[in-house]
Design a protein around this nucleic acid. Structure first.
Length: 489
RNA sequence: GCCGCCCUAGCUCAGUUGGUUAGAGCGCCAGAUUGUGGCUCUGGAGGUCUCCCGUUCGAUCCGGGAGGGCGGUACCA
């Protein structure tokens, strides 16, 4: 035995979670359903490695001083920095650039897998999480955006979200760019400041955003956030723009034309939105599934045109009775410059990604995971260490009819074995001792039924006498009896 | 990253105005119960009171630092 002070503490690194059967099964179901939809739309699966060379991942280049800023990075034996991918878009851009010659173009692929971010974890925010992503590389058509949106709607519903509980909000960066150009904002840093301010609209409201568009904002904790430095008139124009969303897509687009029309870039964005609207309508996606919302901007720099965000409309209460709004569950947009980083050639691309465990949490809140309670196998009680061969034969017989089964392999007595079966959430325990062996019978205990019956019995002697949920029958009838128990459950 | 609050058993928390053996409930293990998960009773295991340094005759308690957690804020490719 090692000295206690030398023993490692059994704990997972912060921001990394262990997921047990219930969560694993739920996420697998989501991925299977969404993959099915994506493949039906002609998107092929693609898997790339967890590591990329750091320079391929984008602007956060690890340097010797701060190699792990934002990403988990390490140096290969040839001294090159490599880093765990932080999303699935950057690896796609790298893959597309590397294989561009031989790929069918436009290239349509979906991917899912873990991504890693080296940043402060929070509630519902981890340093490792699973993303699912679909992109079209090599098509500048607005229809490519529309198709991604329509497919996302269908994918989320296939995963189990109740129809209409998610809404895709669509906007176009070119509108805001046109607006800012008209207001005399040309500097990139200031543009980014405007985007970030607008991105906080849902949290801070118009008044908070007005401060951030101007000089800056002092929050409750006393921290000051520097604003984008717009003059009052320009700030009001931006706010008016973000508030221009109305019901229907076409109506919103018409209204936006009044606000941003006239600038070349703004008109381009309007034309793209109109084309997306037309394609969505043709694809059968109505305004109850996807709307145009000018307040959606997404904080990321690399989007060049259409941007979209999937918002959950579900509102539920958590275990403390607090109201919980799920909010954004995924997003995406058009990024026409990402592949060009490698090839030097502008390659239009658009995509959508969502967090798989976040969607799983949403489904749970929506009460859509009832069926995912994970059952254990039928447990064959190991009564007598000398009769293991008999128990294995029983278990094999049960498996042969398609029911998961296992023989208890611990050392404990029968009481502990029953407890084990209970904890495994086994539907039934199979008990074969001396009596049953001699009589050619098996005793089967329906654990769910037993639990229910036992709750009504308070007297111990009576409980022992009743053996609730238990039946003894000929061995030949074992499989069909178990089948009945499973079907009833 | 910045600001605030917090850290005592596996979990939720008492407690010591600085004093010798730190508690409860739940959970866990076992027995009562020839071969039965529940109930009841009995017993048991489990803690360097987050860590390090300082003050003190003496620190889980006071001071400083570190780590971790929670909330806000920033960032989020």
């Amino acid at each position: 035995m090692t000295d206690a002070s030398q023993r490692p503490e059994a704990r997972a690194p912060r921001g990394f979670v262990d997921r047990r059967a219930r969560d694993v099964v739920a996420e697998r179901r989501i991925l299977a359903a969404v993959s099915g939809v994506y493949e039906q739309w002609g998107f092929e699966p693609l898997e790339t490695g967890a590591f990329e060379y750091a320079d391929a991942l984008g602007k956060f280049l690890p340097d010797a001083d701060r190699p792990n800023e934002g990403v988990f990075a390490l140096q290969d034996d040839d001294e090159q920095w490599m880093a765990l991918r932080y999303d699935l878009t950057a690896p796609l851009a790298r893959f597309a650039a590397q294989n561009w010659e031989t790929l069918p173009k436009p290239f349509r692929r979906y991917a899912y897998g873990p991504v890693w971010r080296n940043e402060k974890p929070g509630p519902g925010r981890f340093r490792e999480f699973v993303q699912c992503d679909a992109d079209t590389v090599g098509s500048a058509r607005p229809e490519a955006d529309a198709e991604i949106i329509a497919m996302a709607v269908q994918g989320l519903e296939a995963a189990g979200l109740p129809a209409g509980s998610a809404l895709i909000k669509i906007n176009n960066r070119k509108l805001l760019n046109g607006l800012m150009a008209a207001a005399g904002v040309t500097e990139d840093a200031q543009k980014l400041g405007v985007l970030r301010a607008v991105d906080k609209l849902d949290r801070l409201g118009p008044d908070g955003v007005r401060l951030l568009l101007g000089e800056g904002r002092l929050d409750e904790s006393g921290a000051f956030t520097k604003g984008a430095g717009l003059n009052a008139a320009a700030a009001e124009r931006v706010l008016a723009f973000t508030a221009a969303g109305v019901g229907g897509r076409a109506e919103t687009i018409a209204k936006l034309a009044d606000v941003v029309g006239g600038s070349a870039e703004g008109d381009e964005g309007l034309a793209e939105l109109a084309a997306i609207d037309a394609a969505l309508t043709a694809l059968g996606v109505a305004a109850d599934r996807a709307i145009v919302d000018p307040s959606v901007v997404r904080g990321l720099e690399y989007y060049t045109g259409a941007v979209f965000e999937a918002e959950l409309l579900l509102q539920t209460t958590d275990e403390k009775g607090q109201k919980v709004t799920f909010g954004s569950i995924g997003g995406g947009g058009r990024y026409d410059d990402l592949v060009a980083r490698f090839t030097g050639e502008r390659t239009p691309a658009t995509g959508f990604s969502f967090g798989v465990s976040r969607l799983a949490a949403a489904l749970r809140a929506a009460g859509r995971d009832a069926a995912s309670a994970v059952r254990g196998p039928v447990v064959v009680i190991a009564f007598d260490q000398a009769r293991m061969a008999d128990y294995f034969a029983l278990a094999a017989e049960i498996r042969a009819v398609g029911i998961p089964a296992e023989v208890y392999l611990g050392q404990s007595g029968m009481k502990a074995q029953m407890k084990y079966a209970d904890r495994r959430r086994a539907p039934a325990a199979v008990i074969v001792g001396e009596d049953e062996l001699a009589a050619g019978t098996v005793t089967i205990k329906d654990l769910d039924l037993g639990r229910e019956l036992a709750s009504k019995v308070t007297d111990n002697a009576e409980w022992r006498e009743q053996r609730p949920g238990q039946q003894t029958l000929a061995r030949a009838e074992m499989a069909s009896a178990l089948r009945r128990i499973l079907d009833a459950g």
